[in-house]
Amino acid sequence: MRSQVQWTLRWESELQLDEHVELASFFRNTYGPTGAFNAKPFEGSRSWAGARPELRAIGHDSNGVAAHMGLLRRFIKVGEVDLLVAELGLYGVRPDLEGLGISHSVRVMYPVLQQLRVPFGFGAVRHAMQKHVGRFGRHLPATVLSGIRVRSTRPVALLDLPPTRVEDALVVVLPIESAMSDWPTGTFIDRNGPEL
């Protein structure tokens, strides 16, 4: 039987060192099974991989951190249009709770998005997550866009790799203060920074 998950919202500056250590361990254990390289950013007490979130939804149960989603307000460029969004990312759920679903995390964040009065919530996920993000429409006014390429800067400039990377992604858009019809057309998004 699963224990009850309790969600808290935490601004980044509120987190204490022991919480970063606990989150880093959570991400290593969550991302590690998908490849050792995916767990590498979370060594030591680092609880973020690329861009650092400004707000986190953290689910806890009797066994510790159960799930996590981060939020970062930023300007992205969709085609030729600069657009303020609240990027959602750094999602994880403990392996024994995989049925918890990404939509639970987004539902916890949705009232915050409304309070922040951003035009859109935005997230980019790999195509393997299509089944999970396809369920958003049941509970939230989300639209999933395919055929979109997303450019991000690498979190660290390395001599043997280009400073940016482009990925084919599924883009999730949540209209908050604007209508979905206000989302710019375009098949290329520039994050102008590292992914969350």
Rank of each mutant, 00 (worst) to 15 (best):
S181G: 06
T34A: 01
L145M: 13
D61C: 11
R138Y: 12
R191D: 13
L88C: 15
G79N: 09
L174G: 02
G134D: 09
G44P: 08
P163A: 01
E19G: 03
I58S: 08
A86M: 14
R149T: 13
K77N: 12
V150N: 14
Q16I: 01
Q4W: 14
V81K: 14
F188M: 13
E98C: 12
D160K: 00
F122V: 04
Q16E: 13
E167N: 10
L158P: 00
H139L: 09
L90I: 02
V5Q: 08
D96A: 10
A66K: 11
G92K: 04
A157H: 00
M180A: 14
S25A: 12
V172W: 12
H104P: 02
P163W: 03
S47M: 05
H139R: 09
E19W: 04
G134Q: 10
V65F: 11
R52N: 10
G134T: 03
E87Q: 15
G59D: 10
W48H: 14
E22R: 13
A49S: 15
R74F: 07
P141E: 13
P184S: 11
G32M: 00
A24D: 05
H60A: 05
T143M: 05
E12V: 02
D160P: 00
L23E: 12
R107C: 14
L84D: 10
Q4R: 15
A51Y: 10
V21M: 09
L17T: 03
G89I: 07
S152R: 14
W7N: 07
V108M: 11
T143I: 04
E80R: 09
D61K: 09
S105C: 15
H139P: 01
M109R: 05
T34Y: 06
L97G: 12
S13Q: 14
P163G: 01
D190M: 11
A51P: 08
L17I: 06
E167W: 01
Y110S: 05
Q114S: 02
E12G: 03
V106T: 07
A86V: 13
S3V: 08
P184G: 08
L83I: 11
P163M: 02
P163Y: 02
V172Q: 10
G99Q: 09
A36Y: 00
V125I: 07
L55C: 06
R94G: 12
E177I: 00
Y91A: 10
P53A: 08
P33Y: 00
Y91P: 03
R165Y: 13
S152T: 13
L159S: 11
L116N: 01
V5H: 10
E80M: 04
A49N: 11
G186D: 11
A51H: 08
A67C: 07
G193Y: 08
R28M: 04
